[in-house]
């Protein structure tokens, strides 16, 4: 098949103009898909940046001290002078609390994702590469964990071991390992059949070397997109745990904690709960949009290549 720009210069084909108008082209499914992915990526990146950048810069930004209480300026509504997001029941600046709380929430999230990503990739790769009983054990574990309402189990762990940051990080990591594991396993299953793996076998390379040095590097890029998505889930999970009273204890003002503390004042001061929640929502929606757009694009590139 020849594309329009490279039609052979035979006299006959020169005569025939294309019937594809700009309008048709704009409405073609290929162009529409491209547009959808672009909109999602741009919007997602924007929303993510709007939340993440201020959190990173929280120490630098001219914000009131996180724990500075002021009896005189309690329950100030948003856009009060000096308090963009207003103040809470103790007169603390909500924006400052949200940004500093975000640092804690995101740190927990990143740590949890690193752990779950590592565990998931290692177990998934072993299961996919070696098959047999390793695969059976890992697969059954994944299935079992996915079919359980894990939140209750996590609450039990937090209740038994105390709501410290390491415990909560660990708990979130444990909750999340099946996703990267499942993905890595399926990718490695495909990779395993490729000729270079057979070649390595013939050359007498130890299997584990092949796996670590060749197979995993080939699949890791695809896993990382999903791991990023897990960061958003980790933030959600931390906030849900905090909301249920199993979050890190004060003075750590994580997002979930701020919301659950503010819940008593919903009727009088809506912003104490609404604004921190909106920040979580914007971040998670942003990351999900970004991931969805990127996934569409990757999928399409692959489709176009084959």
């Amino acid at each position: 098949m020849s594309t329009v720009n490279e039609i052979p210069l035979a006299a006959e084909s020169m005569k025939r103009p294309t019937a594809v108008t700009k309008r048709l082209l704009r409405r073609s499914s290929a162009a529409r898909r491209e547009r959808s992915a672009k909109v999602k990526i741009v919007l997602g990146a924007f929303l993510t940046a709007v939340v993440v950048l201020p959190i990173i810069l929280a120490q630098v930004l001219p914000l009131p001290d996180v724990d500075a209480q002021a009896i005189t300026s309690r329950f100030l509504p948003p856009f009060s002078p000096g308090h963009l997001f207003g103040t809470d029941q103790l007169g603390r600046d909500i924006l400052s609390r949200v940004l500093h709380g975000g640092q804690v929430s995101l740190t927990i999230g990143v740590l949890a994702v690193v752990i779950s990503g590592l565990v998931g990739v290692v177990l998934g790769a072993l299961a996919g590469f070696f098959g047999g009983w390793v695969d059976a054990v890992v697969s059954r574990l994944i299935e079992a964990q996915l079919s359980l309402p894990l939140l209750m189990m996590l609450l039990l762990v937090v209740a038994l071991f105390g709501p410290s940051i390491p415990v909560i990080t660990f708990v979130i990591a444990i909750a999340q390992w099946p996703e990267p594991a499942r993905l890595t396993r399926s990718l490695v299953l495909v990779e395993r059949e490729k000729p270079y793996v057979q070649a390595a076998k013939v050359l007498g390379l130890p299997q584990i070397t092949t796996l670590v040095k060749h197979v995993i590097p080939n699949v890791i890029n695809q896993v990382i997109v999903v791991v990023l998505l897990l960061l958003a889930t980790a933030v959600l999970m931390e906030s849900a745990l905090s909301f249920l009273g199993a979050g890190p204890q004060r003075p750590f003002a994580t997002w979930g904690r701020i919301i659950s503390d503010g819940q008593d004042f919903i009727t009088t001061s809506w912003w104490i709960v609404t604004l921190p929640g909106a920040v979580i929502a914007i971040l998670v929606v942003g990351v999900n949009l970004l991931a969805d757009g990127l996934r569409d694009r990757v999928r399409r590139r692959k489709g176009a290549a084959s």
Binding site: S28, S29, A31, A304
Partner: peptide
């Protein structure tokens, strides 16, 4: 008579059937 089918793909417009 002189049928053409052009496909609008991500890789550009492809004239899959060119005046048959």
């Amino acid at each position: 008579r002189d049928l053409a089918v052009e496909l609008m793909t991500t890789a550009g417009v492809i004239r899959a059937v060119d005046g048959i």
